[in-house]
Simulated assay, not measured.
Amino acid sequence: MGHGGDVIAELTTDHREIKDLFKQFSDTRPGSEDRKRLVDVLTIELVRHFVAEEEYLYPAVRKHLKEGDALADKELAEHARVEQLLADLQQREPGDLDFDRLMVKLRTEVTAHVDDEENHLFPRRRNGVHSYVLEELGNKVRQAKKTAPTRPHPGAPSTPSTPPVNKLLAPGLGMVDRVRDYVSGRGQ
């Protein structure tokens, strides 16, 4: 991921790619290794996307939008639920009984999150923030995704009071995750 444009265009394109990965998953044979590979790719993309949103989008939401704190807190809570589902999926094999059930839950959570962002948060961002700021946020989000972790870290700080900690930890966790991915062939 890394497409160009303002923050809304960037994140909306991410959403389309994530939706396509869910479709690919649905089109594969239950229990197949292709499903595990697709879950790995989906996890990588979702985690990178979430980290970028948490580092740059949600702090801007807090700063620029009325009721921004409540909106950002809601989005962060959704991220935490999805990250926990991703962590649970990473512990399962495609033939496990819980694997498909967890995927249905994940798809439901992510779809609701995407719909909420695209239908409520993004229009408010577009109307409430200068286009220059949106472009700058798009650049920052693209940069953040390059160094973001690729594995869920549900215990890592992501509360409203700790975004600076996230910005410090994400590149280090990202580097460790990418080394692990390279060695294991995950996401290839």
Rank of each mutant, 00 (worst) to 15 (best):
G4F: 05
K63R: 15
K74W: 04
T147P: 00
D27A: 15
L97H: 13
V110N: 09
S158A: 11
L102Q: 03
Y58E: 01
P30V: 06
S131N: 13
L169I: 10
Q90G: 11
E33L: 07
S131R: 15
A156I: 06
K19Q: 12
V110M: 11
H79K: 07
R180S: 05
R37V: 08
R186Y: 12
A80E: 14
D88E: 14
D73A: 13
V51S: 02
S32I: 10
R142K: 12
A72C: 11
E10K: 06
L38W: 04
L65E: 02
E117F: 12
G172N: 09
R126F: 04
V39F: 09
D100S: 00
G31Y: 07
D100P: 00
R29F: 06
P59W: 13
K66V: 02
A80H: 13
R126N: 07
R178F: 00
A156Q: 05
D69I: 12
R16P: 01
R16Y: 02
L46K: 13
A70T: 03
A52I: 01
P163V: 02
P154Q: 06
K167Q: 11
N119F: 13
R35E: 02
S131L: 14
D88G: 04
Q91I: 09
S161E: 13
F25R: 08
G187Y: 10
V7G: 02
H3D: 07
R48P: 00
T147S: 04
L106D: 06
D27F: 10
P149W: 03
R29K: 14
R186T: 15
R16H: 05
G2P: 04
Y182C: 05
T28F: 12
V51D: 04
A170W: 06
N139H: 12
T147Q: 01
E118H: 10
P154I: 08
L173F: 13
G95S: 15
T12N: 05
K140D: 05
I44E: 10
